[in-house]
């Protein structure tokens, strides 16, 4: 993790347990450990890819950072200042530096609002502008994301999926945030459109210096856009490294298995897949020690007892695995 002035986003031991209520009186019968103590940081103009399979807590992590849900424990710092525990109104004022792009461009736009008003909404929240100034800004944003001016007064249903996601990106960009949390921004789109939107995000990062927390399950997409990648499994980050280092030499068995599942567009290469046995355990009763030990081909006694901590196994390459204990030393 680069020690710049102060990272745009810094997350420390972020935890979220959802209580499971049962019965008439709402007795708490247990907890879903959705996010279990994750830590990372994102620097200026940097993209951190957060990958993991469905239900591993990556979207919950995104919502926690956006403060759409309150964390159970841990710290979230936005440009060095803590935002966890802030009240609704104080948090509202800080939202200017952090915006969001959700997965489904169909449900993330109010069907009753015109494109212009959708993009203008954050502007109106934070800046006292005249209507004419808003018009200019919105038209600029439309140009930035590759939409036409004659589409300003259309309704969301008059746009295609890719165009809608451009609209969502324009809204996120409107107040010039330092960080945009992208929660699976392309997984609802066609592959050809995915590439356009990904490249748009990369272009916008170059132009405006915005940082992305890019949550996804598609490794190819993550490899293309990210500078660093964090791999999540059952609420924990198991590996965090620069893109090249991670894809060239994964240090955690789970990452290894994930990468082996990526299809290679070359028929002469015989795939050597690592097929994991069993299912992801329940986050209500996660396994002891290392969460991955139930499915890990290399698991040994220590994995069942002791939770592995993140260690720097290679320069700027962190993994939470007992196998790597002492490997770097």
């Amino acid at each position: 993790m680069k020690a710049s002035v102060s990272p745009v986003l810094e997350v420390k031991d972020l935890t979220k347990d959802f209580p499971i209520k049962k019965g008439l009186l709402g007795r708490t019968a247990g907890h879903v450990h959705a996010v279990d103590g994750i830590s990372f940081s994102i620097g200026e103009s940097e993209t951190l890819g957060l990958v993991g399979e469905s239900g591993c807590g990556k979207s919950t992590a995104g919502k926690l950072i956006l403060k759409l849900i309150e964390p159970t424990a841990g710290e979230i710092r936005l440009s060095g200042q803590r935002i966890d525990g802030l009240g609704y109104e104080t948090m509202r004022a800080r939202r200017r530096t952090m915006q969001v792009v959700f997965q489904d461009p169909y449900s993330s736009l109010n069907p009753r609002m015109r494109a212009r008003d959708i993009v203008a909404e954050p502007l109106r929240n934070f800046e006292a502008l005249l209507e004419s100034e808003i018009d200019t800004r919105v038209a600029e944003l439309f140009e930035n994301v590759g939409l036409r001016r004659d589409q300003l007064s259309r309704f969301p249903h008059e746009f295609s999926g890719g165009q809608r996601q451009r609209l969502v990106i324009a809204r996120a960009l409107a107040v010039r945030p330092k960080l945009i949390v992208c929660d699976e921004p392309v997984s609802a789109l066609d592959v050809s459109v995915q590439a356009q939107v990904i490249n748009l995000l990369i272009d916008l990062q170059r132009e405006f210096g915005v940082a992305y927390l890019f949550i996804a399950h598609d490794l190819a997409v993550v490899e293309h856009i990210s500078h660093r990648v964090a791999v999540m499994y059952l609420g924990r980050i198991v590996e965090l490294a620069g893109k090249e280092s991670l894809f060239a030499g994964p240090q955690h068995p789970y990452t290894e298995a994930l990468l082996s599942a990526v299809p290679v567009p070359d028929p002469t290469i015989k795939p050597s897949r690592i097929i994991l046995q069993g299912d992801v355990p329940s986050p209500i009763k996660p396994p002891s020690g290392c969460h991955f030990h139930t499915r890990c081909p290399y698991a040994f006694e220590r994995c069942r007892v002791e939770r592995p901590v993140m260690r720097e196994t290679k320069p700027d390459h962190f993994a939470a695995c007992h196998l790597r204990d002492g490997a770097a030393a």
């Binding site: 915006q99 959700f102 997965q103 109010n110 609002m113 929240n125 996120a172 409107a174």
Partner: peptide, 25 residues
């Protein structure tokens, strides 16, 4: 709905969220 969550995330005040996103629906 994601568009209501997006409105919260983009800093819209609660009365405005009700008026703009909840009531019409």
């Amino acid at each position: 709905q994601p568009y209501v969550e997006a409105a919260v995330a983009s800093g819209t005040r609660t009365p405005m969220i009700i008026a703009r996103h909840i009531l019409p629906n």
